[in-house]
Amino acid sequence: MLTATQHQRIDRYLAELDGALGGLPETERADVVAGVREHIEAALTDRGGITDDDVDEVLRALGDPLTIAAGATGDDGGSPGPATVASEDDRVRTVPMLQRDWVPGFVMVGLLIGPLVLTLLATIGGIFLLPFVMLGGWAVLWISPLWTPLEKLAGTFLLPGVGILLFVGLFTTGSTEVCGGGMREDGSTYQTCTTDGWLTPMVFWITFVAVAALSIGTAYVLYRNGRRRTAALAQSFSTGA
């Protein structure tokens, strides 16, 4: 991990870059700084134990913040580059549909909250909605570029886990309870129950708590990452007006 001094050095470099990019719209500036920050992290991860010299070397290879800024803000008027030509409609560009800020919330509702609530509303027909809600959630989760493949895989199975287990617990008979009772000779009554089958209440509740924890943990990570990425995108796409 980085020492405090190394962190400081990197932060100072990024602050200098941010300052040097003053000529750019706020939005583009944040995008460039985020890219460079990612570059530094990736370059340092490639090495083993990180020394101060490693940090210096990575920053030196990036170049002087002022040089980077000069390339970014230089006389933009007649650049023959393809980006200039294609970005004339920058001001009307909006963030693509499946990368907007409602997407993480939508996926959470579809895959975590949907199965839970609809299971509880099963008696009034909620169960018929369940396939649609979940398919919608899965589709958005997989099509949206907000998450990595690993995150998508985790979300696919772990998010609906708790709701599905609740469904199983409520509506299937993994076990049967047999009770018998009667009256003893002294007039008192008695009742004994035995549970057959693999799914005893004990096993069910332990599994339920474990799966619920996994579902909620996954939801937290995916929602947080998703929101962070939509925020970064919104910044890079906004008009900067």
């Binding site: 870059l17 750019l24 170049g63 913040p65 890079s236």
Partner: peptide, 22 residues
């Protein structure tokens, strides 16, 4: 320097010539 890349990538992305994913 390597840093010069990032303003260009940002412009290309805004211009819709490249797309990115995590």
């Amino acid at each position: 320097g390597e840093g010069t890349l990032y303003p260009l990538l940002s412009r290309l992305r805004k211009g819709g010539l490249v797309a990115s994913s995590w």
